[in-house]
Amino acid sequence: MLSPWIVVGTSFAYLLLLFAVAYFGDWRAAQGRSVIANPWTYALSLAVYCTAWTYFGSVGRAASGGVWFLPIYLGPTLAMVLGWVVLRKMIRIAKTYRITSIADFIGSRYGKSPLLAGLVALIAVVGIVPYIALQLKAVSAGFALLTLAPAAAPAPQAHWSQDSTFTWPWRWRVSPWFLARAIWTRPKGTRDWWLPLRLSRWSN
């Protein structure tokens, strides 16, 4: 059992470390000695694929169903076989047209249709909601696991609208910090009317 402040403090220290690494990467790139333009860095950065699902879902699946936790990692490996052919082309197109989301990508491939881009964004939002919920639930379950005494009785189940897993993200989402970040990170030179639908990019 740990003090909540230790857990929160460690989390923020880790976040600061990530910012420091990003700052270092930008600083080196600006000096022309980039550490980012490196196949090892790129390959290791693909580890962002490991989310809360990896640490909670996969372990749970391995415990309950044995080896069937593996296909979720075998699939992307198989997809990366075509990475050189498919991903490279997608990255080239995205860089040329300064595209940062799958909605804009598909929209730009079919006549720069804003309607299609909006539709894709909408589908992506609906599709990603359970996934975001899973991440948040894992974070709050992990927090509870670290801070509650092992023998403590689990807290009585609150109504879903009172659950902190539900209420916290909304407080974050409408916070000025998140709105400011969403505005800063929009693609340069575009007037991005689909901003409110970009939950997928906000959550990255």
């Binding site: 296909p71 075998l74 490996t77 198989l78 076989v81 075509l82 050189w84 052919v85």
Partner: peptide
């Protein structure tokens, strides 16, 4: 032939892992 080789590897991997 790199693209073709990678495509063949993809198909091979697909078959072996299914």
């Amino acid at each position: 032939l790199l693209s073709q080789r990678l495509s063949a590897l993809f198909v091979g991997g697909w078959l072996l892992l299914n």
